[in-house]
Nucleic acid binder design. Structure first.
Lengths: 295, 295
DNA sequence: GCGTTTTAGTGTGGGGCGTAAACAGTATGT
DNA sequence: ACATACTGTTTACGCCCCACACTAAAACGC
């Protein structure tokens, strides 16, 4: 999972995937970040490259969308673009770098936010767009922790957040902290959504007596939506859990109506966002960063 | 990454890792959850097992702590416990199930919360304990999304949260939503911490001209603490980013003092928690769930 | 124009992974 | 005592990422 691809600074780059040569501060940045910003020395000699990093990344994205991150292997990508697996290594340092490029590429699909509206509506739209992106590309959340350095698209999205906070008088590092908190919330919310959907799908499969191998497309979408993602939790509580070891849960859920917990829906996205934004609003007020006439 | 280990319900279990046989509702739960709660039929014949799932999980935890999740392979675990890799499959259905068992096992280390104190202090302690657990075992966050079904330890921890919210008058599903929001925050906060620490370590390595292969233990801890985890972001902004494509960032950071962003510290943990709790408090008030005499 | 040098893509193979299948040996139930 | 059921081993398969040595092609210096 963590492979060293960084050449020792000052040394000539290894054979495939050359890095910018000129001495100077450039060598300080991780190689993947330099590639992200197009800071690669152009080739002078040799055959014209037919493949390109962009095509590789695009194929990888399509593969991930269609079959999940597990299907994204060098061999599969090579097959998709019509080359040998090893050909990819001329354009991408390794799989780790490829994942980094993918993670910035998905951020390119984020929309441009409308300029009007208050800071709160703006931040809500900013957050929502990301949650929806995460839900539409569930494999994003499986990317390794290290695959999120600052790339052009991510930074552009950050810039939009700072645009929303333009009129807020707060030092930039505090703005960064606020935005970072929202970004965290995005990850969590998308993750919960994806997990509960998977749980619902599993539940439907089990009820229908099907194997996990049955593709989701053969399942009844209505049944999936109606499924209770907390079913396992409730079953475990009822069947295995001892009331004396979990007294508080039993006390709370004893008075619970038969109607089980509702599945997280769009309303739950709003629930989370509004709570976090309430907290942020309280913070901004405390810091005197927003005028009092904004309710 | 996603392997089908669930036998078709009603069919006899496959050879290794037998499931509870008796017909009835038991077969409805995922096999891993049943194992988690010790719902496995005891053996009657054959040699006494020398290995056990517990020992396997323990070895896996030690490996993950020492060398990260990537080092946790069936072969390495087998080596650690002194058996053949295939021996593990007599006690654990597969790697997926092993990860699930690990994920509940780490939750066993969560402390018992003190009973006194208000709901807010209680929730803060509850959240903090989890963040610290996540920071102390960074590999937890790399576990696949699916590895978090309700196990005894996790449920116990959830029970503690409900204990904290005992005096709050709120239907249990709303309590669950609130607690879930905090659990999300935990994941995000721990993730940010780990990522920024990794970034700091990388920065120190690069400044010292070392390879990524250099173990972290050889690095100066003081330098790591002093390192700026946003260094890459700032460098990228200064070197590659075009002010016209990122106007808001440039405007904000133009007036920024030389002193760079401070690394996330314990104070930043408090920052995030307090904002989320402020939001929750506003919600509880809106729902009339807390008395007015609590400030 | 011609060698030299650099580069793009290929072929092969090594070491790792998870795990299916057949097997030897051991303790229990009858 | 025998059949049965169980544990742990052996062997092997198919996948993975990637190092290395190779061929063929493009551009530079003369």
């Amino acid at each position: 999972m963590s492979i060293d691809t960084t050449p020792e600074p000052g040394e000539p780059p290894r054979d495939p995937v050359e890095r910018p040569q000129g001495t100077g501060p450039e060598t300080e940045l991780p190689a993947a970040v330099q590639r992200l910003w197009g800071a690669v020395a152009p080739r002078r000699r040799g055959p014209k490259p037919a493949l390109s990093a962009a095509r590789i990344v695009q194929a990888a994205l399509e593969l991930a969308d269609a079959e999940g991150l597990a299907a994204v292997s060098m061999a599969r990508i090579a097959e998709a673009v019509g080359y040998t697996p090893m050909a990819l290594y001329r354009h991408v340092a390794g799989k780790e770098e490829l994942l980094i490029l993918m993670s910035d590429a998905v951020a390119a699909d984020l929309p441009v936010l409308p300029a009007e509206g208050g800071w709160r509506a703006g931040l809500e739209a900013w957050t929502r767009a990301q949650i929806e992106l995460g839900i539409s590309r569930p494999w994003m959340l499986e990317l390794p922790l290290s695959a999120a350095p600052p790339g052009p698209n991510r930074v552009r999205w950050l810039d939009q957040a700072f645009g929303v906070l333009r009129s807020i008088e707060l030092p930039p590092d505090e703005k960064l902290a606020v935005v970072g908190l929202l970004a965290q919330h995005v990850l969590g919310e998308a993750r919960v959504h994806i997990e509960s959907r998977r749980a619902a799908v599993q539940q439907v499969r089990r009820e229908a007596g099907l194997t996990d191998a049955t593709p989701e497309s053969e399942l009844d979408p209505a049944a999936i939506n109606a499924a209770n993602p907390y079913a396992d939790f409730e079953t475990v509580l009822a069947r295995y859990a001892d009331p004396t070891t979990y007294p508080n849960l039993f006390e709370s859920f004893a008075t619970w109506p038969e109607n089980p917990t509702t599945a997280p829906s769009d309303d739950d996205i709003a629930f989370g966002i509004s709570i976090v934004l309430d907290g942020i609003e309280a913070y901004l007020r405390r810091r005197g960063a927003i005028p009092d006439d904004e309710s």
